[in-house]
Design a protein around this nucleic acid. Sequence first.
DNA 1: AATGAATGAGTGTTCATTCAT
DNA 2: AATGAATGAACACTCATTCAT
Lengths: 220, 220, 220, 220
Amino acid sequence: MSSALPSTTVHDASRRGRRKESRPGELLDAALDLFVEKGYAATHVEDVAARAGVSKGTLFLYFPSKQELFQAVVRQAIAGRFAEWDLELEGYDGTSDELVLYCFETWWERIGSTKAAGLGRLMLSEANNFPEIAEFYRREVVEPGHGLIRRVLQRGMDRGELRPLDLEHAVYLVLAPLMFLMFSGSAPTLCIPNAERFSPQTYIRLQADNVLQGLRVRSS
Amino acid sequence: MSSALPSTTVHDASRRGRRKESRPGELLDAALDLFVEKGYAATHVEDVAARAGVSKGTLFLYFPSKQELFQAVVRQAIAGRFAEWDLELEGYDGTSDELVLYCFETWWERIGSTKAAGLGRLMLSEANNFPEIAEFYRREVVEPGHGLIRRVLQRGMDRGELRPLDLEHAVYLVLAPLMFLMFSGSAPTLCIPNAERFSPQTYIRLQADNVLQGLRVRSS
Amino acid sequence: MSSALPSTTVHDASRRGRRKESRPGELLDAALDLFVEKGYAATHVEDVAARAGVSKGTLFLYFPSKQELFQAVVRQAIAGRFAEWDLELEGYDGTSDELVLYCFETWWERIGSTKAAGLGRLMLSEANNFPEIAEFYRREVVEPGHGLIRRVLQRGMDRGELRPLDLEHAVYLVLAPLMFLMFSGSAPTLCIPNAERFSPQTYIRLQADNVLQGLRVRSS
Amino acid sequence: MSSALPSTTVHDASRRGRRKESRPGELLDAALDLFVEKGYAATHVEDVAARAGVSKGTLFLYFPSKQELFQAVVRQAIAGRFAEWDLELEGYDGTSDELVLYCFETWWERIGSTKAAGLGRLMLSEANNFPEIAEFYRREVVEPGHGLIRRVLQRGMDRGELRPLDLEHAVYLVLAPLMFLMFSGSAPTLCIPNAERFSPQTYIRLQADNVLQGLRVRSS
DNA sequence: AATGAATGAGTGTTCATTCAT
DNA sequence: AATGAATGAACACTCATTCAT
């Protein structure tokens, strides 16, 4: 703040200084990036450490194993997202049309277009290799997500805006378009070959509009 | 032992050489199964060889590396399937409603519920590691598939059954539900947590019905 | 068999040839030597492999882990020794004086002066780190050994040659001198500082003679 | 904060510096306990520091390496104990029978049943890795011990109570039972499998009695 | 053509040791 | 004097690949 302070001293300290509070975060960030980019197996702990600017040994100072590092990454990237969303839904007072569109767009902003989506893709690949993490992810992310969609649809039925639905399968009317977009990131060239003519926002709006046509109470 | 004895040669040949031409095929089949079941990294060449009933060394006699084996697997598994489908579409004379439902259900029968789906999942995971084979898959599978959906939708618009559509994004109205179901196989427990109450056929019909509601020409 | 066979071919084969039958034995020999010489921790699998003239990978081809290698070493070095000894004892028909001396001297010849003693020393050091192996060793080596001494003493009492003994403690009258000599090998310089004036055979005879003086029935 | 405040300095000093001189001693005590309990390799410097209530860095302030710490532990633990014993022997005026029994029992009380025995076990294991300290131990502990036993036996011969003995080997008539009991502690389960029916005191008395039978002048 | 024994580069993990504060 | 965050060398184990037979 003071322009007279020799800021270099502060920066010099960072190389081998007391950084204990910030280290885990830096390591988690580096790990998130690499895991998302290269997958679990191809991400070497040494690379994570290097990207965080520390040595391999330092990483193990904060995370006892590669798997625990991975779990911590999953935890930090998704912790407590749903509490907030649930509250938003609770207080929402618009029509189901508006709500569904809001869900689609908000998902894209907060998940689909962020690194969190990368984690979802990772889980898809690694669930079989790490049953414990998969179970954790199911409990902390998948179940709450499904529950949220369920409540949106139930609310619409209760308000007479949506037709009677078999919720067990109907959740996927909403989820499938979102999940497909997320998974696409694993191989964009394969899933969305004409990337240059593709706009996620247009996709989101089109899907929301279309699914709503099917969900609304039908005249006949 | 003696090089002059022709009979032994014959016998040896009949035992060893009987399947000589089919060796690569057996290896590819075994590899396809294992790659699809366990993923690329978790599939060990030794297991592939064992499943094909040959030794590890023999595998390398036919495929110079694990990567080449993988590429060969993908190549053989996607021999031009689309020619046939294109013909079916050409001759189809029902309504768009019928055609779309037919597409959904046929996809499930011929792709979604078969090993081909496993291959799609595999490509999703490994596309980054195998750019060449991804490009091949895109050309041979993705593009034809997109084209086919495009023609279905265009046909509907031409016949006045479907509303005007931005095809670039509308293809995903059909593809997203199918692709999500396919990708789900990578981690069923994460994608479809309530597996016991879930029926793919019900899912397929519900999605087809719902998407059609949105695709039809709209009164207002 | 035929004297015309070019024997060199056979020998040349040894470097990378089919040696599967002899490999485990060679590895076990090398491992025994190194374990005994350097202890468990200081013995690196790579060194064992090198001494056996193979690569690290080859060792793991035959033994799935360092610990299993160790167990195999223990097994081979002591397997079935006691069956033979028990038979000898059963058929022995000399006096207890002769029998005890025979035990002392035979132990020295077959155990004390051989690599088996090195294994005993190793177990002393590593028992705490490998409870399973220790249990195995107790069952297969220690218990039979104690039982054998017990029977020798009981036989002496039954024949009226030895005084009544509390076997639970008396076994150590025989065992202590032998075990001390064995353990000495871990640090000869500490246990037997005047090595140049020390003769194991003299030690063995002196100890046997002396312990017998105490074991015999006493006049008073 | 202000460098002019002397009171804080005083306080800091009293809290931090109070035990400054005793630090090395506390570390040595902690190290002795752990080395004896877990062996050299399994004792981590961090645990030693923790047990002494200081940080890892502080340990290295007093001992430049783990090896030096070990050597210091051994050195302090064997401060000239034998001077005292030698005097006792010099002034002893009982029979050899009494003296030998006294030696056995006193050894158990002062060595065998104390931490000193743990040190002996440690030396047995680590003598090869620490030649210098082994030499020190030999000079300070082993030689005096052997000398003491030698003088006891010589005294008995001089007094006509013990038969003529080859001292070079006869010392082990006394030492072997004691050393075996000491070494047993490294792997009690292997050396004394029926621990619940075993009493060290009974062992000590039985061994002393038995060895004396052999040592006494013989009638024939 | 087929084998399978042999290889060795590569990775996660531990722990004694260092050093800026 | 004391701290404790950071280091990096060392080691067990895996597995795609090679090659003598």
